[in-house]
Write a protein that binds this DNA or RNA. Structure first.
Length: 467
RNA sequence: GGCCCCAUCGUCUAGCGGCCUAGGACGUCGGGCUUUCAUCCCGAAAAUCGCGGGUUCGAUUCCCGCUGGGGUCACCA
């Protein structure tokens, strides 16, 4: 019988939701769901100095936005609760105590003054400060004192072999594995202890996480051995990169999910794009749904090269998704977007039928929801047709006269009139387009004028007084 | 610096010893359609497969070295 697959992501509530977290969530979610397993979310808030109020909620709403909804978590509950590490302190203490008793961990003296110091790399690991104090006997005593931490022991001679399902076996010499702090002086566990304990207790079978964790995996393997627990399968995915090839960061790229929302990207497009970072569809398809992805993908096929996150290609893909949308859905999305992020109340005072026509014209011309509003400004009731130069006055007059003669007001009759004006004044369409709309590109003119309606167009032309 | 991971067009990538005079996509450039722009269609440029050694009848594909890039060496995750 096949073992039930359980995966997880373990984000820290330290700020906005990171696109890298979504990248991990995608693979974890897809792999679990593909195997009718479960995908859980555990909140790793053991570093209270970096804790950000409200960050937890934003993580969940981001997951919902992408449709990567978990089976178990703080908000969903589940058999393995609690799912927030700060609520599991007693569990970590109990297991840490077990390690102390088995002599797999020891107390090290670290006066409070040293707390929070980032070690400057010197080649030596400073294991503990000089002291004549007697070490504590239990975790409890340690926390009470506040000057001690708990470190794991690492066998001096033995090398540790880590099996990565994507990269194969990786061997680490003992000297490379530091005697990692397990419990900090404030009683909170470090990631290493907490993650191992939780992954085991929560029945995680497959750990899918970023490449940055490879070098600390031997510590984790050692801990599993100390506890005499089965080691889960590890998959280390490549890291998303900035254009300068460094690990994707705020400084050089866009890492916040919020940013993508504000820019008008669609979650399906982002997911599709992300899935192509380090993975290829067997038929080399570029556009596919999350369902299709789950069907055909395999964690083992993930490449090991850190891909550069190319916004240009994402934008193209987003445009593809927008073009595929049913027009009513697109309108719905545009409306929601404008309510949340828009500045112009572009949909006010425009009836549904008109909105539909405008949206249809815009659909092939926008790549993000954000691009819609600037494209249609000339439809706004108080917008004005622009005339930049006195020399164009004659053209405006011709337009007024000729358009005024139209009996059956539609895009074809309008186009015919416009053509006549072009010939009369010996100008080309781009010139006329700019005279009328004040811009060089945008929605097609005959259609736009047709939608605006004869009265409005003539009125606007009236107001188009040369400066 | 030690250790670990990695290395095909500018970018995302296909390739898993001969089908490769290296394929696709984005982007770029040119053309067509056309009422501006876009969509759409057609075409082009773009990788001496990082370099050097092997192994082999034969290497982009296997091995080694070098170089380059990335990650990691916290009482952060």
């Amino acid at each position: 019988m096949k073992q039930l697959i359980r995966t997880r992501i373990a984000p820290s509530p330290t700020g906005y939701p990171h696109i890298g977290t979504i990248y991990q969530a995608l693979f974890n979610f897809a792999y679990a769901k593909k195997n009718t397993g479960q995908f859980l979310v555990r909140i790793e808030d053991t570093d209270r100095t970096r804790f950000v109020q409200g960050a937890e909620e934003v993580i969940f709403s981001a997951l919902d936005w992408f449709g990567l909804t978990e089976d178990e978590s703080v908000r969903k509950g589940g058999e393995n609760k609690p799912y927030r590490q700060s609520d599991r302190l007693a569990i970590y203490h109990k297991h840490a105590q077990e390690l102390v008793e088995k002599d797999f961990a020891y107390f090290a003296y670290y006066p409070k003054a040293d707390a929070g110091q980032k070690k400057v790399y010197t080649g030596d690991v400073k294991q503990q400060a000089e002291t004549t104090e007697t070490p504590p006997n239990t975790i409890e005593e340690m926390i009470k004192s506040g000057d001690w931490i708990l470190r794991m022991r690492v066998p001096k001679e033995k090398e540790t072999i880590v099996k990565d399902e994507i990269r194969g076996e990786i061997t680490f010499a003992a000297a490379q594995v530091t005697e990692q702090v397990l419990i900090k002086s404030d009683g909170y566990p470090t990631y290493h202890l907490a993650a191992v304990v939780d992954d085991h207790l929560m029945g995680i079978t497959d750990v899918v996480r970023g490449e940055e964790w490879i070098s600390s995996t031997p510590k984790h393997v050692l801990l599993y051995q100390y506890f005499d627990w089965e080691v889960p399968k590890f998959y280390h995915t490549p890291l998303l990169r900035n254009p300068d090839k460094s690990k994707l960061s705020k400084r050089h790229g866009h890492t916040s999910v919020t940013w993508y929302q504000e820019e008008g990207y669609l979650p399906q497009a982002i997911l599709n794009f992300l899935s192509l970072m380090g993975w290829t569809h067997p038929e080399e398809k570029e556009i596919f749904t999350l369902d299709e992805f789950m069907n055909v993908f395999d964690l083992k096929d993930i490449r090991q090269v850190g891909p550069i996150f190319d916004l240009t290609k994402l934008t193209w893909m987003n445009g593809e998704y927008i073009r595929q949308l049913e027009i009513d859905i697109l309108i719905q999305l545009l409306k929601e977007y404008e309510v949340k992020y828009g500045e112009n109340k572009i949909f006010d005072g425009i009836d549904d039928n008109t909105v539909k026509q405008i949206a249809s014209l815009a659909q092939s011309r926008i790549s993000t929801l954000k691009e819609f509003s600037p494209l249609i400004t000339h439809f706004l009731p108080d917008s004005q047709f622009t005339v930049l130069h006195e020399k164009d006055k004659d053209i405006i007059v011709s337009l007024q006269e000729e358009l005024g003669k139209i009996i059956d007001w539609n895009k074809d009759t309008i186009l015919e009139v416009l053509r006549g004006v072009l010939i009369k004044h010996s100008i080309k369409m781009p010139v006329l387009y700019t005279i009328i709309t004040g811009r060089e590109r945008g929605l097609p003119l005959p259609e736009s004028l047709s939608i605006l309606g004869r009265e409005t167009v003539l009125r606007k032309l009236d107001h188009a007084i040369p400066i």
